[in-house]
Design a protein around this nucleic acid. Structure first.
Lengths: 193, 193
DNA sequence: TTGATTTCTTGCCATTTGGCAAGCATCCTG
DNA sequence: CAGGATGCTTGCCAAATGGCAAGAAATCAA
């Protein structure tokens, strides 16, 4: 079984090897998600944690007026999960959809919990996932406050070029907290340079 | 020992009682934090988790231009911790400071971890803390994107009236992602009603 | 290939927010 | 109580962003 990338990912987060590691990765199942397919649909309870090896995905919800708001982009070699719904077992207000054909490894909530209780190493891994996702989110929030839309756009361009390539501009716009009109103008300005 | 509020707080998050509960709360130490005192200073590594029974606190960092940005307000009966620094053992970029005299219960990182390994119930509690803090943060980020500054202000007014009472307006402004000038204008408008 | 659909850009103008500086107000300290 | 610091408000104008509608470009399906 070719799970090298998953193994590398886990080991980049926590020190673990040998049978402890084997135990962990055996619980992950290969999974393909076709372009436009939903990994999570609002109104349902999320039941999977997913390591995305190739492809990219987008999370979005709807604001009170019914407009789509992109809440996150997931690039390859990243973990994909909706914290509240997965861990609090609540009905999700978010969707997570594949922007391209995706491949990776998934594990169910139940198996995740079994592993948490059985393996201190994996427990540490689980906590790291939460903590890192949280830290990334804080970073993003801070940017919303103290960077201009243009700076946020340029940041995204450089750090997430691949995601950027597959997402529609209106999705990127709502992720940046602006309208597609404004994004279009920002792009015009920044290509001038 | 009068830790009823702490007990109630833990029980509102996970089902636990008897000796398992006693084990947990015995690890928390009473702690007072005077007005303006720092619970966490940027440049240091956070080492405590704190349950805030009375009083309120503010988290803030500095943007690239050196301006203070308020990242969070903590009301009474809430937990206070800085995720990245506490759990990744990294140097904090954030400060957490008491807005009023505060009282509550704290537990060190080391003790926290011992408890995590020893008690499945507490493990669950720890996860809940992370998950709920994360969910709250996502909510806040979403508001920054799809609500106007005025709506965000009115929201804060109604949901966090007590915090609001002790924080300076410029702190509230940066929390809302606007300048103190704009906040002042928004307040003028909304008191007209 | 062609027509239909969707996405993206643009022009025009409105609204929101910001920057600065001055003026009040409040609070603290001696 | 006086003086000084700090925090809050306001006026003026600039900059950023939004809303709408039309048109251009890209995409998709027959």
């Amino acid at each position: 079984m070719a799970k090298e990338v998953l193994i590398a990912f886990i080991q980049s987060n926590i020190p673990v090897s040998g049978s402890a590691l084997t135990n962990i990765i055996d619980q992950f199942a290969e999974r393909l998600i076709k372009k436009n397919e939903f990994f999570l649909k609002e109104g349902t309870v999320s039941n999977d944690y997913f390591f995305l090896e190739t492809g990219c995905m987008r999370a979005f919800t709807h604001d009170p007026d019914g407009n789509e708001v992109t809440t996150y982009f997931y690039a390859k070699n990243k973990y994909v999960f909706e914290v509240s719904s997965l861990f609090m077992r609540t009905v999700s207000t978010e969707n997570i959809q594949a922007l391209t054909d995706c491949a990776g490894y998934s594990i169910t909530f139940e198996t995740l919990n079994k592993l948490f209780h059985a393996s201190p190493e994996f427990r540490e891994f689980g906590r790291m996932m939460l903590v890192k996702a949280f830290a990334a989110f804080k970073q993003r929030t801070l940017e919303l406050i103290n960077k201009s839309a243009e700076e946020r756009y340029e940041n995204l361009m450089t750090t997430d070029r691949d995601v950027f390539q597959y997402a529609q501009l209106k999705h990127i716009a709502s992720y940046l907290g602006i309208t597609d009109t404004s994004l279009s103008r920002i792009r015009r300005e920044s290509t001038k340079k």
